[in-house]
Design a binder for these strands. Structure first.
Lengths: 185, 185
DNA sequence: GTCTATACTTGGATAGAC
DNA sequence: GTCTATCCAAGTATAGAC
């Protein structure tokens, strides 16, 4: 792996752990084992490197979501698999957490990949719900777009509650609660 | 209002806008119109002032939640009022957003008021759901604790999605989705 | 109680040698 | 491509005058 990739990986890890305002170029370099000159050779600055890192994390997130959602099974089964899959709950969502960062939301270029990623997950979930509705598995009158957004919100909010509690328990409870409603409807 | 209170208010506003790592003592002082010496006279340092600010915001949040939840009406009506009440969606939750701050979650003293506040909101919501279940308004088998956590997660996640999208729309959609499930069950 | 001066560290970046 | 030197602003706090 080249130095450039090591810098991106280091930035990804630090953005996940500490967010954008909490991450310094120096910290990224040290974690990557690279010097000042190396980083500023490959990237124009902190923002440029962060963009590369966020885009990479966004790709991985979408791939991971698709792994559960494009599996064989009913809509509810696939969504259950997605919600229940192994997660590093206490670390939070590497993409969603960036939406709490003032410098990310204030900059359209930095916010764009975050927005796009979450929008795509919502759209993919809505597709799955549409399939379930078409199959008669879910009620005909169901607002699938709204429910898809609710499901993503439960995940993102579950991370928030788990980090606040320093325990994965609220995350699991939030997921259980929405699944109970979903299977009852 | 005394200088001390102005410092607390200034810190509250900045913690809401920029989080803990993104807020400097200097910025707090300037916004409060106070000097260095004034702040360090009233507070031991950044953390001490942040604690006072977070505790104050936590109080207000719990009071505001109770305003909707302790109103007359059925359980579902009260929860609907709580979810639909006017909010500064794009600013996010002044308490929940702190759970994304690395220096907050790493410090038990700073994390405690955040944790306690969200735990209390969940507990209050569970009480309301319990009342609805006892009144026959909600199914007997309902896991009210789980559903209460789901509802708070929808709010917190709704903020995340809205800030990412720079639009309140996903927040409103997430709320609609969970209310549709709730009223259908 | 509040102000100014001072101190030391870190953040973020540029310049130029190799 | 990478390293070291250098730069200037900001972060966080202490000291002492008023």
């Amino acid at each position: 792996m080249g130095t450039r990739d090591q810098l991106v990986d280091s930035a990804r890890a630090l953005l996940w752990e500490r967010g954008y305002v909490g991450t310094s170029p120096k910290a990224i370099q040290q974690r990557a084992g690279a010097g000042q000159g190396s980083m500023y050779h490959h990237f124009a600055g902190k923002k440029d490197l962060a963009l590369a890192a966020v885009r990479r994390s966004a790709e991985e997130l979408l791939t991971a979501a698709d792994a559960q959602l494009s599996t064989p099974g009913t809509a509810v089964e696939r969504i259950t698999a997605y919600l229940r899959r192994e997660r590093e709950v206490l670390k939070g969502c590497p993409i969603g957490r960036l939406s709490q960062d003032p410098d990310i939301v204030a900059d359209p270029e930095l916010r764009a990949p975050v927005d796009e990623t979450l929008t795509r997950v919502r759209a993919r979930l809505a597709e799955v719900l549409d399939e379930g509705r078409a199959a008669g598995e879910l009620p005909a009158g169901l607002d699938t777009a709204a429910l898809a957004t609710t499901i993503v919100a439960v995940l993102q909010g579950g991370y928030v509650l788990a980090r606040a509690a320093n325990s994965p328990e609220p995350f699991d409870q939030a997921v259980s609660g929405v699944l109970a409603l979903l299977t009852a409807c």
